[in-house]
Design a protein around this nucleic acid. Sequence first.
RNA 1: UGUCCUAUAGUAUAAUGGUAGUACAUCUGAUUUUGGUUCAGACUGUCUAGGUUCGAAUCCUGGUAGGACAACCA
Length: 555
Amino acid sequence: MSEERTLNFLEQIVEEDIANGVNGGRVLTRFPPEPNGYLHIGHAKSICLNFGLAQKYNGKTNLRFDDTNPVTEDTEYVDSIKADIQWLGFNWAQELYASDYFEQIYNFAVQLIKKGLAYVDDSTAEEIAISKGTPTEPGKGTPYRNRSVAENLDLFERMRKGEFKDGEKVLRAKGDLASPNMHMRDPIMYRIKHAHHHRTGDNWCIYPMYDFAHGQSDSIENITHSVCTLEFIPHRPLYNWFIEQLGIFPSHQYEFARLNLTYTVMSKRKLLQLVNEKHVTGWDDPRMPTISGLRRRGYTPASIRAFCERIGVQKRDNMIDVSLLEFCIREELNKTANRVMAVLDPVKLVITNYPADQVEEMTAENNPEDPNSGTRTLPFSNTLYIEREDFMEEPPKKFFRLGPGLVVRLKNAYIIKGEGFEKDADGNITTIYATYFPESKSGGDTTGLNVKGTIHWVSAAHAATVEVRLYDRLFKVEDPGSEEGDFKSYINPDSLQVISNAYVEPSLLKAKPGERFQFLRKGYFCVDTDSTAEKVVFNRTVTLKDTWAKEAKKG
RNA sequence: UGUCCUAUAGUAUAAUGGUAGUACAUCUGAUUUUGGUUCAGACUGUCUAGGUUCGAAUCCUGGUAGGACAACCA
C-alpha cells in the first residue's frame, strides 16, 4: 500500500486537469498502433503509460489501430498486437480502427475545402517537396494552390470515385508556406492508393495521412489525453489547427521520450529487416526485443510492467541499460521459479567408494525463497554428470569447486574429494574420479567438514536429455543504430548457442511450454514452444548474476 | 546556419525557491548446501557564464551540447 513514487510529468498534467475540472475530470486515453509490425518493448512502455494513466485516474483506454496505409498493414499484425496487449495484462475499453472513421474523415476534408482551407494539388511528390522550401527558406507553393472551392470539391469527389491514378493528385491543407514549422506548409491530407485495405477492402482508393487521421480519430472518440512520442512534437500545432478549423472535440497531444535499450534496435523497420533477412527466426525469436520474443524468451508480463515502471517517463532522450530489464526478470523469477539441476556441458564423475549398484533418493528444496514450494526427490548414484567448468586440473587459489585433492559439496547430496581424472588423446578430460564422505549427507552431515563450494549434478543413469538454447545479446555494441555503416554488421555472431544434449533431472521431461525454472547456478530457463514429445527445448531467459565469472575474467 | 524539444552520478529517475535522494550498474564486506538470494557499506552528479533572491538543480538572460523537423510513412 505504500505508493511512494512521485508523479511523472504526465500524471501531473492529468491531476491538474482533474483538479481544474477539464473534461469534467474524465480521462480517456488510447493506444494507437499501426498494424504493420509486431509490438516491442518500446510499445510496452507506451502501453503501460496509456493504460496505466487511465487505470490510475478512473479512466479508460481505447485500442485504436492507425490503419491509414493499406499497403503496409495486415490482419496478422492486428492479431499479434491484440494478443500482446492482453498478455501484458491490459484490457481496452473499445477496439477501434481509424478506418472506421474514413467516411467521417472524408466529410471533415470536404468541410475544410468548403472553408477554403484545403485544395487538390496535381503536382508530383518532387514538385511538392521543392515548393515547400527548406527549414530556413519559405515555401513558394504550387500553381494549384488557388483553385476555386467548387473545383476542389469536384476534384476531391472524383479522387474518391477512382478517376485518377496513384500519385496523380493529393488533397492538401492550405496552411502557411512561410511557417518555420515544415508541417504547417500545406501538409498533404489525402493521397490516392488503389490498394486493398485489410478492413475496408476496395471501398476506398484515397486514404487520409496520419496528420489528417490521428487527431480526428482522437477527437471522434473524445480522447482527453493523446500521448505519443517526441517526434510528433512538431505535428502538434497542426494537430491543434485541424481540430480548431473543424470545430471538433479538443483532444490534447502530449509527448514523451521513446524507450531505447542497449544492445538492441527498436525501430520496426530494422526489426523487419532482421526477420526478412533471416538474422533471427521470426518476430518472436527470443533474441528480439518484441513482446512476443520476450515472452518466448521467458519474460513475464509482471516483469515487463515492473521494468516500465522503473524506467520512468520523461522528455529527454534516453538509453536504458538492458541490465535493468534483466534485473526485473531475475527479481521475479527468484521468488517464483522452482530450482532444478541441469548440466549443460557434462563431464562424467565417478565416485569410487560409492556402491556401483546403489541408488539413493535425495531430497531437494524446490525453492528456498518460497516456503510453500515443497520438496522433491532426486536419484543419486556412483556415476554422475557435473559441469565441465566445475573441475580444474590446476585450480587457482580462489576456485571453490572440484580439483585434485579439493573437496566440494554435491548439492543436496554428499561432500566429495577429487582424486584423479582421465583424458583422451586430445587432452580433454573424459572422467573424473572422486571419493565421498558417507557421513556428509545433506541434512545429516556429521563430518564437521567446512567446504566452500557446492556444485550441481545429475545421475548419469537417470538423467533426461534435453535441448537448451543459450541466448546472448543480439548486438555486439551498445547502440547499433548510431554506429558507422549497416547496423546489421554489428550483430553478435554468438547470440545463440544450441546445446542439443544437456542432462537434466528426469522430472523435467514432463515440463510444458511456458514453464519456467531456475537451473541451479546457471540461470532461468523457460520451456520453448518448439518442444516435442521426443525432445523438450529450454530457452535461457537470463543467467544468474555471476560474481565468479567477473572474478575469473580479472585473471 | 530556421523553428521546436532536452540538459541532475556510468545509465535512468526524484527533489515543484529551503539538507541533491532512489533504482540499476560498479566495487567492499557479512551470511549462504546456488560464486544465486539476503544484509551492511563504498563510489560517482546539478552542462557553462552571468543575473534575481536571505537562499537557485529549480526563476531570468547569454552561451554550449544532444535530439527532432523539409515521406503521397506513422
